[in-house]
Design a binder for these strands. Structure first.
Lengths: 136, 136
DNA sequence: CCTTGACTTAGAGTACACTCCAACCCCTAG
DNA sequence: CTAGGGGTTGGAGTGTACTCTAAGTCAAGG
């Protein structure tokens, strides 16, 4: 598979795929006779995993650490599990935080819905005098 | 309240507070005779709201838009509600995505827990040959 | 009086994760 | 054989949100 097809299948741009390879997040791709990258379909599984970790806010540094552990072999299984568990805990905490924020948002939206019907509600919010004009 | 106390109460650094004021996310603070910022406690409510929006991934640009609407007055209530509703929908979608990722993480972790007991499991993952050495 | 520590400013620097550019090469269809 | 559409590279540029620096001012305790 050439890089163009992998962009379609993975959703990552060719720029990003080359960038990931350069920093070591993707293995060095095989090359065709003409020097073009030639990917194995198995890479999609790894990219999907990276995508999920990215979605959940894992920094590239940590994905690199995971990739390095994986490369080292079976001896690192415990370390990998720990890494993922730590990350999972962070994600869970973040989800909880987001849900708390959602509750506040819902309340605020409900308040606006009421205020819009009543036409004018003066004490719903603190008056704040903002600077007039653009940021410097 | 001086900026030092507000840093403690808000959790934002003095740098950040001044930065937020400069870009218009916080109202221009009153000044003491010596020119130091003198905050009203009411600002904490606004900062808390900003924090929540930040936590849920709202970009500063959009918070500025919200602040501008708020400043304009009651006529913008519908627009503000819409802004928050749009944001809420995004956050909900993101939470759903995170939960899907969490499910995958759980599965993967469970797999590792098994593999660690069995000592050696060879076909659990695709072998990927990573580049040896550092990124350029 | 002097030191300490909190405050002030404009502007520069940082971290992260891309994203793009210039200038090139290579294959295939018309 | 040439035009188009892929691919290649190193390195520079972008956007977001801070974060820090330099060079001061100011107020209060010992």
């Amino acid at each position: 598979m050439k890089i163009g097809e992998l962009t379609k299948r993975s959703g990552l741009s060719a720029h990003t795929l080359r960038y990931y390879e350069r920093i070591g997040l993707l293995p060095v791709a095989d090359r065709s006779a003409s020097g073009h990258r030639d990917y194995d379909a198995a890479i999609l599984v790894w990219i999907e995993f990276l995508d999920r970790m990215k979605t959940t806010g894992m920094p590239i540094r940590e994905m690199l650490r995971y990739a390095a552990l994986r490369e080292t072999g079976d001896a690192t299984i415990d370390a990998r599990r720990e890494l993922l568990e730590t990350h999972r805990d962070k994600v869970r905490a973040h989800v909880a935080e987001l849900q708390a924020c959602l509750a506040v948002l819902d309340t605020k939206i409900a308040g606006y819905a009421g205020a819009s019907q009543v036409e004018t509600t003066h004490d719903a919010e603190h008056p704040l005098r903002f600077r007039i004009g653009k940021a410097r």
